[in-house]
Write a protein that binds this DNA or RNA. Structure first.
Lengths: 138, 138
DNA sequence: AAAAGACATGCAACCGATTTGCAAAGTTTA
DNA sequence: TAAACTTTGCAAATCGGTTGCATGTCTTTT
């Protein structure tokens, strides 16, 4: 993705396109799997972890990325699809490979509806499947 | 539950019924919602956190309890149903209330099946719903 | 019963991920 | 340009989870 495209993603979400942010957004856009804070930190090797952290928080608040709790103890981040509002209906399943440790967004696999007990109100949902990804299943 | 019942649960899973373990198991059995390590620590007020931690680990390994990752950053624990083997088929949905912060096992709500992409192998699953529980929805 | 072994408990300290405080640098606005 | 605000960088705290190691307890063996 070129700078113009990246900038317009940020603008669309009212986030000022600073150099740092464009860099991080670009990096995220290149990833096949969701990235943790430390994944990103390693890839850049010159950026401050806290700045990275705050950049991700800003992105998350503005629904540029969503965070994924895959149960490994470190949050992963991945780009939201265009116009995503992170509502239960927008949510997809995530898959964590126990071998290569990568976590994928299965964007084509929406979380199936579950009836809740009477009176419970659903706001958010998280569904993570774990096992072997296609590369590791062989 | 009386001591005899508690002891037999432990024996059934080959865990030596020490005083500590009976105490913790009893406490867990009394809970309506899943408990974190610190929840339990507060309830007892005289036990060492590490001992509690190791007790829970032992219980978990022997499938007396299961741990729940509700996304809050602290693991919750709840009793397994009798004979539970913690296989994907045994799994139920969990619900975390964003108001009262309690996490419940919805044991009657099994996790719906999701087709995975070709070649992916499923080993484990986690599904957490978040929102308002019946008490907080009002 | 004494000694040996095995497991359980308690305390201190560490670890990794995340978060906060605060000062410095960069931008925007009056 | 100066004041006001935002972003960035570094240090350090917090928090949940975990390990090492000494001590205590219980069981088994001699």
């Amino acid at each position: 993705m070129n700078d113009k495209q990246l900038t317009s993603i940020l603008n669309a979400r009212s986030v000022k396109p600073t150099a740092m942010r464009l860099l991080v957004l670009d990096m995220l856009a290149q990833q096949e799997a969701a990235s943790s804070l430390s994944d990103l930190e390693e890839q850049f090797d010159k950026v401050d972890k806290v700045t990275l952290y705050r950049t991700l928080k800003t992105f998350e608040q503005h629904k540029i990325i969503h965070s994924i709790d895959d149960g490994t103890g470190s949050a992963k981040y991945a780009l939201c699809s265009e116009g995503c509002e992170c509502n239960p209906g927008d949510l997809h399943v995530h898959f964590h490979c126990q071998v290569c440790k990568r976590t994928f967004c299965l964007t084509d696999y929406t979380i199936p509806a579950v009836n809740l007990p009477h009176k419970f109100v659903l706001k958010e949902m998280n569904m993570v499947m774990k096992g072997l990804c296609e590369d590791c299943a062989g």
